[in-house]
Design a protein around this nucleic acid. Structure first.
Length: 261
DNA sequence: ATGCCTATTATTAATAGA
């Protein structure tokens, strides 16, 4: 019997400061699976109880002050597959977690920002992208239904930026990172939002500065990539922009797909 | 070229974000 699954990614920008925003969005949007980024909390401070009371099982990889990723599943506990992106034992940032959930493999990622570019942070971003490319290739070889969802910190094309010229030299838009994203897609991944809405201006992030949300000065940097096994199941995709208009919001909005599996 | 705004951490200023 086919059923519909709603999978979302949401850079929460502080899971403690944003807990009420998260809970009200879960209640309203009722996603089946949620990938969270930027928990900005050590593991022991993750609000597991409140999230469980909202009906979601969770696994998370926390870190003091920065980064941090989690996977939530409605009515069940995601089965963790890994909590590190392979390829660099020296990398201690909590930026990747992966689980089996609802018959899918779900990878939740928070790609490094990379500014200022050029520089060591940009180099780290490019190396992280290389490691993601390698791991994503391994996932494809398994032929499993996979979703790679998260904050990629990349605007793939000019259509994904409110003012492309102002962002040319930024670590989120430089040719190196756009090429890296294109090379990832070329493995066979489907960018769900862009596939469902070709030619449309869609943003997932608006700066806190300069009244950016009211001016719709946004960026599309949160992406859901579907493996070939899963791409035919894609039914709808969107961004819950209204969440960005609330009191004390994250600077990102929840971004989601529905799949018939 | 830089600040704007925000969360976190450590003590009212620094850091990182994008």
């Amino acid at each position: 019997m086919p059923k519909t699954l709603k999978i979302a990614t949401f850079n929460i920008n502080g899971v403690r400061a944003r807990l009420s925003r998260l809970l009200e969005w879960l209640e309203e949007a009722k996603p089946d699976v949620v990938c969270l980024q930027e928990l900005k909390a050590p593991a022991e401070s993750f609000p597991e109880g409140a999230i469980r009371d909202a009906g979601y099982g969770a696994i998370w990889h926390g870190q003091k002050s920065w980064n941090g990723v989690a996977i939530l599943a409605r009515g069940e506990l995601p089965i963790e597959r890994r909590r590190v992106l392979p390829g660099d034992p020296e990398d201690v940032h909590s930026r990747y977690i992966e689980a089996d959930v609802r018959g899918l493999v779900v990878g939740c990622l928070y790609l490094p920002n990379g500014n200022p570019a050029p520089g060591p942070k940009f180099d780290y971003k490019l190396r992280w992208f290389d490691r993601l490319h390698a791991h994503a290739g391994d996932l494809l070889k398994s032929r499993a239904p996979v979703v790679l969802a998260g904050d990629y910190n990349v605007m793939p094309t000019d259509l994904d930026v409110y003012a492309p010229e102002r962002w040319r030299d930024d670590a989120l838009f430089r040719p190196e990172v756009r090429d890296a994203y294109a090379n990832l897609l070329a493995q066979g991944w489907t960018d769900a939002l862009r596939t469902m809405h070709p030619g449309e201006r869609i943003y997932t992030f608006w700066d806190y500065f300069r009244n950016a949300f009211a001016r719709n000065a946004g960026l599309r940097i949160d992406h859901l990539l579907l493996s070939p096994a899963l791409a035919p199941a894609l039914r709808a995709a969107g961004v819950d922009c209204h969440a960005r208009a609330k009191e004390k919001p994250s600077d990102h909005a929840p971004t989601w797909v529905t799949l018939t599996v």
